[in-house]
Design a binder for these strands. Sequence first.
DNA 1: CGCCATACCTAGATAATCTAGGTATGGCGC
DNA 2: GCGCCATACCTAGATTATCTAGGTATGGCG
Lengths: 101, 101
Amino acid sequence: MAHGHLDLLLLGVLRRGGPLHGYAVIAGLRDASGGEFDLPEGTVYPALHKLERNGFVRSDWSIVDGRKRRLYALTGTGRAALAAKKKEWAMFRSGVDAVLA
Amino acid sequence: MAHGHLDLLLLGVLRRGGPLHGYAVIAGLRDASGGEFDLPEGTVYPALHKLERNGFVRSDWSIVDGRKRRLYALTGTGRAALAAKKKEWAMFRSGVDAVLA
DNA sequence: CGCCATACCTAGATAATCTAGGTATGGCGC
DNA sequence: GCGCCATACCTAGATTATCTAGGTATGGCG
């Protein structure tokens, strides 16, 4: 469903909303995209873990509303990666549009 | 490299250029996209075969410039599929852009 | 006549994403 | 106070898409 642009979307939604937990990432993506991206947990959680392994996000367990949640936040590296991926996306997008024009 | 939109690109390039053979599809995609999509043969040929199995393109062997080439052309079904995939692309595109906005 | 670009192809590897499970807990209705 | 549902997290394995790395054949050029 995210067709190879999942990392971009995850980094993007984290940049908008500040620290978010997994479920909120899914909900944020669904809302921000107008329902276009309603990703399964089994897609999002492993992807967040990979982003953390790569140093693009950092996570902390905290208790919000009396519930344990793992909050994900962008790192500096992640912000830079987001900027790079946004450029790639812009090129990809105009490449596709050019072929379809 | 085509991140899940390969079929769209192949159908799109065939719509622009009329019947094309495999190599010309690759070159057409490279040129039309301004170099963004320079796909390996091992990606394009199997994808064209799959499009043909699905009835989206039709192929005929012919001799062009004294060389055997398999020319691919859009079918009616393929044209409809292209229209549908263009709509999907537009939604995908605005979904991503909305998340990044 | 040998080589290179063109032209076609497939098998197997790799990578991304999804399916289908599993666990735990807070709050709500009864 | 108990059962259930939504929230919240997770992983293993399957699936799918795409790429890598090969292979073959031929026309034209030096």
